[in-house]
Design a protein around this nucleic acid. Structure first.
Lengths: 83, 83
DNA sequence: CGTAAATTTGCCAAGAAATGTCAAGACGTG
DNA sequence: CACGTCTTGACATTTCTTGGCAAATTTACG
């Protein structure tokens, strides 16, 4: 499937899509959803990967990342944001 | 210690500091560091909490947060960003 | 109560960052 | 070479972040 089609599905220029595909740009949520739809893949899975990526980018390069993730985990447990 | 002093230490308006303290604004990294310094607390700990907060904000409200955290964890292990 | 200090809130503006487009060039293939 | 596709870089646009100001509210205390 040519980028042209994907790009069209996302309402963006092929140039932009290209960058997203190459990881030079972050997709936005709606775009991830649209991609899941067009490619007929599991949207939730894709969103998870996309979020994991964002989190990774936020914490990579830090020290004690495990600690940070643990703290987050505790907060999740505590406030029961698990849906 | 009055907000006025903290605010002064961060070179910002008390109003702005107030928002940060109430969680209506995110502090920026340098500000967290400055706070640690002024309050004479462990900077690394504070930064960890601050980052955990940011991550939490990013994922709370999502489903399967644990999955997401796991994925991140794997990436960390894989690419050895643990400093 | 009355006053002053401290905190909070709402709103706006400047700047930074993210996202997008365009035009030109690179790459592959008939 | 000619075509379609993909990539790149410079620049435009949109969106988010940050901070200030002024006014409102709360708190402290005589």
């Amino acid at each position: 499937m040519p980028q042209r089609q994907l790009a069209a599905a996302l309402n963006i220029d092929t140039a932009t899509y290209c960058k997203i595909e190459k990881g030079e740009r972050k997709a936005r949520r709606e775009q991830v959803e649209a991609i899941a739809y067009v490619l007929n893949t599991d949207e939730k899975e894709l969103i998870k990967l996309w979020l994991a990526d964002k989190v990774y980018e936020m914490v990579s390069g830090e020290s004690n990342v495990q600690d940070i993730l643990n703290i987050v985990n505790e907060k999740i447990l505590k406030y029961g944001q698990n849906i």
